[in-house]
């Protein structure tokens, strides 16, 4: 009934026996105990659960744990090296890109994905790039400014 899985999250290896129907976000939160990744909805709309899976930003509520078997995942806890903040984290802090912080891990990972595919987005492109992530607190304005600042620091222009 249960299926063995193994994956690397933030550089550490995690294995477990899971039900085939288990969502990846639940493995990350419940089995690996990495609760920085959030669950904000049950229809894949909010983006709170965004992580990096084998280098690509994905909503971890849209994947099953078994589909991620053997993969390498980065969550918000692993985005910085533990000493320095990632430029996106720093920029969200500088620009007041968060209020309650619940959407923030997903928003930062989604922004990282945006900058991976478009290192120097315009403000308009940032707004479009983040349309899959919902924030109810900030009205998005400072999030856009934060992503712009981070893009500058990360070598885009």
């Amino acid at each position: 009934m249960k299926v063995p899985v193994e994956m690397t999250i933030n550089g550490r290896s995690y294995c477990g026996e899971v039900e085939p129907r288990q969502l990846l976000v639940h493995f990350i939160r419940e089995e690996a105990g990495l609760t920085g990744t959030k669950v904000g909805c049950d229809t894949s709309q909010c983006g709170s659960c965004t992580v990096r899976l084998d280098g690509i930003g994905v909503k971890s509520c849209t994947a099953l744990t078994v589909q991620a078997d053997g993969s390498s995942i980065t969550t918000i806890e692993g985005l910085s090296d533990g000493v320095e903040l990632h430029p996106l984290q720093e920029a969200f802090w500088n620009k007041h890109g968060l209020q309650c912080g619940f959407c923030t891990p997903g928003m930062i990972l989604a922004a990282a994905e945006l900058l991976r595919t478009n290192p120097s987005p315009t403000r308009d492109e940032i707004r479009h790039g983040l349309e899959g992530n919902i924030c109810r607190c900030t009205g998005y304005q400072n999030i856009v400014l934060a992503v712009e600042e981070a893009a500058g620091k990360m070598g885009g222009s």
Partner: peptide, 11 residues
């Protein structure tokens, strides 16, 4: 913010 942007906050 430091705890919130690093996923260290507990809801």
């Amino acid at each position: 913010d430091p705890r919130l942007i690093t996923g260290r906050a507990s809801y």
